[in-house]
């Protein structure tokens, strides 16, 4: 869908993007992660052709990214807003026309979306008379109205209450199911694992990590396991594993071990079976949040 090759963006006193390359596969939800000021917005602006990179190329469906692709991209900026004095319906039609839709087609699709999100009564209201959450909903419609094949959402859930955040999340998933590729940019990790197929992590203008979520998690597996067992038998460290913690509760105990190199879980369990009655074994998987924190802080 989108291939970004060796992008460099230099502002007078700092480099916003330093040799960033990304591949965004078709039909996936791609998480663009990074702390504030990492260069996410700079990258998104380049993809939207708002600014141009100093070096590097971008390919959209194997074509060099060019102005006519604008109509295939829908962009929900982090800093959002609408003309406050304009009426909702009129403004939506204007924004759709700027994306190349005809007035009639825009009206038809707006009727569909306004009905779907149950906001038809807002048509003749001025934007300034809507609450912030309502404005966000309207702006979301403006982003997807022209059926873009690539939807770029920069912090889409900020400003939404949990109920409306869920509605918007469902809409995003539905659009994705219908074939739209989605770039989801955020510095909040809560919904990343739930939503994203692939992620890239940008920190201090550089890409530090990218790939499919499940591959990354495998890559960052710590070989740590949690084992619950009967009674209070203490376990000692040995050549198979080190002990991170070993706690005793009323009827049972919990052991957290980290396997030594080249040791499989089976070998460890085989060793333990002779000593204890195992109730449950569970791998401790690092969350994307943990990986994010680790990556960002180790780069400090």
């Amino acid at each position: 869908m989108l291939e970004i090759r060796n992008i460099i963006k230099q502002y007078a006193d700092h480099r916003a993007l330093d040799d960033v390359s990304l591949y965004i596969p078709e039909g996936k939800i791609f998480g663009l992660l990074g702390p504030n000021g990492a260069g996410k917005t700079s990258l998104i602006r380049i993809i939207n052709q708002i600014t141009a990179p100093d070096a590097g190329e971008i390919y959209f469906n194997n074509e060099v990214l060019s102005p006519h692709h604008i109509e295939e991209i829908g962009y929900l900026p982090e800093e959002r807003g609408l003309y406050k004095k304009m009426k909702v319906g009129e403004q939506m039609i204007y924004l759709a026309q700027l994306k190349g839709l005809s007035k009639i087609e825009a009206r038809r699709r707006l009727d569909y979306w306004f009905e779907k999100l149950d906001i038809s009564t807002w048509w003749n209201k001025k934007v300034e008379d809507l609450s912030k959450g309502m404005q966000q909903k309207v702006q979301f419609v403006a982003t997807v109205l022209h059926n873009p094949s690539l939807i770029i959402l920069d912090e889409p859930f900020s400003g939404f209450d949990p109920v409306n955040a869920q509605i918007i999340q469902d809409e995003i998933l539905e659009l994705n199911k219908k074939g739209a590729t989605i770039i989801y940019s955020t510095h909040r990790m809560e919904s990343v694992e739930e939503l994203c197929d692939n992620i890239a992590l940008i920190n201090k203008s550089k890409k530090v990590l990218d790939g499919a979520v499940k591959d990354i998690k495998k890559q960052y597996a710590t070989h740590t396991y949690k084992i619950d067992y009967q009674s209070f038998i203490p376990i000692e460290a040995n050549f198979l594993f080190t002990i991170i913690s070993n706690n005793h509760y009323q009827e049972q105990s919990q052991l957290i071990i980290k396997l030594s190199n080249d040791v499989t879980l089976n070998q460890a369990i085989y060793y333990l079976l002779e000593k204890i009655e195992i109730l449950q074994v569970q791998e401790i998987i690092p969350s994307i949040h943990d990986i994010f924190i680790e990556k960002v802080t180790t780069h400090e």
Partner: peptide, 16 residues
């Protein structure tokens, strides 16, 4: 200034 402070500029500028 209105376009800038209301941030509507971001949306418009991604189209034109």
């Amino acid at each position: 200034i209105e376009e800038k402070t209301s941030r509507v500029i971001e949306v418009i500028i991604s189209s034109v």
